[in-house]
Design a protein around this nucleic acid. Structure first.
Length: 496
RNA sequence: GGCGCUAUGGUGCAACGGUUAGCACGCGGCCCUUUCAAGGCUGAAAUACGGGUUCGAUUCCCGUUAGCGCUACCA
């Protein structure tokens, strides 16, 4: 069956925070892989940690994934609703001898220092210097409890957890599409807990049970899980299942090479959406963090990303999140695609800023698209449209002080502007060349360089020094507005 | 502490035994120019260190160092 060959992958966030850029990159890789292979992406919420889990965060994660453009085919499934399955699996492992009951107090093994127990260190240092390379893990005393002791504990009603009975010898192996073939000494793997004494499964158990149940073929996840993988392989075997192919992707770090956290600034994808980044730019940027085509391709629109994505191009080194490069991608995506593609984003941005007028969406749609096209070569973030380009969409704007100081300094400016106002007001057919001719005519008549008048006029009609070419701006603004704003500037200049 | 992973300019990636070590972001300069961008050209900037293997190492092996990860009844 060919359908059996189609990969099934999953993204499995835990709702202990918002969707951060690392998780977003993992989700994106899973999605690109599924799309490329014609496979299926499953969304699973890993909320088994009752303490830290915050249900209200789930929605934010889904919204962020949708913004990113990562669409899942199945789910979301919630682990918190599948407890019975995990308990059954734990009991099965216990019953078949791959696990054992542990009556220890949780606190006893949740020690703060990560050093091996003293007696263990001492005993190994005395005799056999020929021992195996791997450190012996401190086993829980319950592992070797006699039947009588076990029965006694049970009778006392001491809460019981189920631990995996890791073989003391041998090697556990698995295949990783990124890191290659792995061999891990079983002696280095501790007897990890499968089922908490509360009856709630641990991550190790629930992932494996779900990945088996959901028939996951490729597990693409962060490299922080690489060390846990042998444990999971052990569970697969104990459950009589074949492990899937793993693909651990390197981590994304902050500028100081430590794990990304709040103090590195924005880390949630939601904050980038709010800041005015385009989802496709974010996708392109994220895709190239830990993956490359093998050649020097950098600007790749999403269909090309899907077309070219391959696990074999995933790197093994951690990457640093470089905001400057993200911003460069955003300028590219703001400027290169056909303008119709970005018009909706600008519309949403203007609505957010309260500057949107419904007429622009209908009869004067052409005007809006043309104006967006005029402005966008100078934009870096969507917010620029309601920011420095505000005057294109509303008469409610102020004069930038720096621009005023620079271009309205000369005392001849008011007089020049007044002459220009009259000249422009007399234009019968308002277009680029007519405006150009009118302005140059005034400049020539007054004996000043056109540039002086151009710069002064720009400040008058858009309030700042940075704007698109002046005559294009005049056309976009319309004659009435330009003349009106010139008069307003005259009043402003006269009043100071 | 133990186990593991990684190591090319400031950053992201190329070069998968033989290149003047390439591209992009950022930074500097020049061009264009009506401000500011964009664009074009251009400059500075890297193989962590030490040993091997080889005719030849960025590339393969070992060690050192550094960073990161795991080492929880977190995920």
């Amino acid at each position: 069956m060919s359908s059996a060959q189609k990969p099934r992958v999953r993204f499995a966030p835990s709702p202990t925070g918002y969707l951060h850029v690392g998780g977003a990159r993992t989700a994106l890789f899973n999605w690109l892989f599924a799309k490329h292979e014609g496979g299926t992406l499953i969304l699973r919420v890993e909320d088994t940690d009752v303490e830290r889990n915050k249900p209200e965060l789930v929605d934010g994660i889904l919204v962020a994934l949708k913004w990113l453009g990562v669409e899942w085919d199945e789910g979301p499934f919630f682990q918190s609703q599948r407890g019975e399955m995990y308990r059954a699996a734990a009991e099965k492992i216990f019953a078949s001898g791959f696990g054992y009951a542990c009556y220890c107090k949780p606190a006893a093994y949740a020690g703060g220092d990560y050093s091996a127990p003293k007696d263990e260190v001492e005993s190994s240092s005395e005799g056999d210097d020929e021992g195996p390379k791997s450190a012996k893990m401190a086993a829980c005393p319950c592992r070797d409890m006699s039947a009588d002791e076990l029965a006694a504990k049970q009778k006392e009603g001491v809460p019981r957890a189920i631990r995996f009975k890791t073989p003391r010898t041998g090697v556990t192996t698995f295949e990783d599409a990124v890191f290659g073939h792995r061999d891990v000494q079983n002696a280095d793997i501790e007897d990890f807990v499968l089922l908490r004494s509360s009856g709630v499964p641990t991550y190790q158990l629930s992932v494996v049970v779900d990945d088996i149940d959901m028939r996951i073929s490729h597990i693409i996840r962060g490299a922080d899980h690489l060390s846990n993988t042998p444990k999971q392989v052990l569970i697969y075997r104990a459950l009589g299942a074949e492990p899937p192919i793993f693909a651990h992707v390197p981590l994304i770090l902050g500028a100081d090479r430590t794990r990304l956290s709040k103090r590195h600034g924005a880390t949630s994808v939601g904050s980038y959406a709010d800041e005015g980044f385009l989802p496709e730019a974010f996708r392109n940027f994220l895709a190239l963090l830990g993956w490359s085509t093998g050649d020097d391709s950098e600007f790749m629109r999403t269909p090309e990303l899907i077309e070219r994505f391959s696990l074999s191009g995933v790197s093994r080194t951690n990457a640093i999140f470089d905001r400057a490069k993200l911003e460069w991608y955003n300028t590219q995506y703001l400027q290169k695609p056909p303008v119709e593609e970005i018009v909706p984003f600008v519309e949403a941005e203007l609505k957010k800023a309260g500057l949107w007028q419904d007429a622009w969406g209908t009869s004067e749609h052409a005007w809006f698209a043309k104006t967006v096209d005029l402005i966008r070569p100078r934009t870096r973030l969507l917010g620029d449209f309601a920011g420095w380009a505000r005057a294109f969409f509303t008469d409610d704007f102020s004069y930038d002080q720096e621009a005023v100081d620079k271009f309205w300094k000369d005392e001849k400016i008011p007089g020049l502007l007044a002459k220009l106002t009259d000249a422009l007001a007399a234009i019968p057919d308002w277009n680029h060349d007519a405006c150009d001719a009118a302005l140059r005519g005034v400049a020539a008549a007054e004996g000043v360089k056109a540039g002086v008048l151009i710069n002064a006029t720009r400040v008058a009609i858009v309030g700042r020094a940075v704007a698109p070419p002046l005559f294009d701006t005049m056309v976009a603004l319309s004659k009435d507005r330009v003349v009106g704003r010139l008069r307003r500037a005259a009043a402003f200049l006269a009043a100071r």
